[in-house]
Design a protein around this nucleic acid. Structure first.
Length: 180
DNA sequence: TCAGTGATTAGG
DNA sequence: CTAATCACTGAG
């Protein structure tokens, strides 16, 4: 007897397009939870990790956002439309991975703080091999890093951002850190 | 709790 | 040029 071979349906994971990133950072930051970060190594291996913690940095008014000091060589990319990477070096040791959001000349970004299996923004960039060469990379067109949609609707919490005590009571207390 | 580490920035 | 600052981590 012949039986039709069983076809297992794997949910198709689509790359997130420009429109996902050009929304306000307060929509994109929680929206990235449970999405899949995909990165291709130099040897062609593709690794994928669920995003589990993010933080929103919102415009030049936000005293915790690097753009509050204006447009500088480092913050330049934040002034582009959403979808680019803002990568910078801090504390002499760690690369921070941020995704630019919003529209042109409206500096915003999401800090990726944790993945499913790795907590801490400095640790995840070490795991992924993110460095200065990723500054400005476009998640919509890059062939080495992108984000895929998932069918998961995350249940998440929100709380104050980490490490921004210098920003003053008003901005440091904003519940713009999102986590599963 | 606290040192390590160096790019970035403002100011002179 | 100088010095302060810093979206952190790991050891104790």
């Amino acid at each position: 007897m012949t039986e039709k071979p069983h076809i297992r349906t794997v949910p198709e994971l689509m790359r997130l397009e420009r429109e996902f990133f050009t929304r306000d950072v307060l929509d994109v930051a929680p929206g990235l939870l449970s999405k899949m970060l995909a990165i291709k190594s130099i040897n062609g291996n593709i690794r994928k990790y669920y995003i589990s913690e993010t933080e929103a940095y919102r415009g030049s008014d936000d005293k915790a956002c690097h753009a509050c000091r204006g447009r500088t060589p480092r913050t330049e990319i934040m002034y582009h439309e959403g979808g680019r990477l803002y990568v910078y070096f801090v504390y002499g040791m760690y690369w921070m991975l941020n995704i630019v959001t919003g529209t042109e000349n409206n500096p915003q970004a999401v800090l990726i703080r944790s993945l499913e299996n790795c907590t801490g923004p400095g640790r995840i960039t070490r795991l992924l091999g993110i460095d200065k060469s990723f500054y400005g990379e476009d998640l919509v067109t890059s062939d080495r890093i992108w984000i895929e949609d998932s069918s998961i609707t995350p249940v998440y919490m929100a709380g104050p951002r980490i490490g921004v005590d210098y920003a003053g009571e008003f901005w440091k207390n904003k519940p713009w850190r999102y986590y599963l």
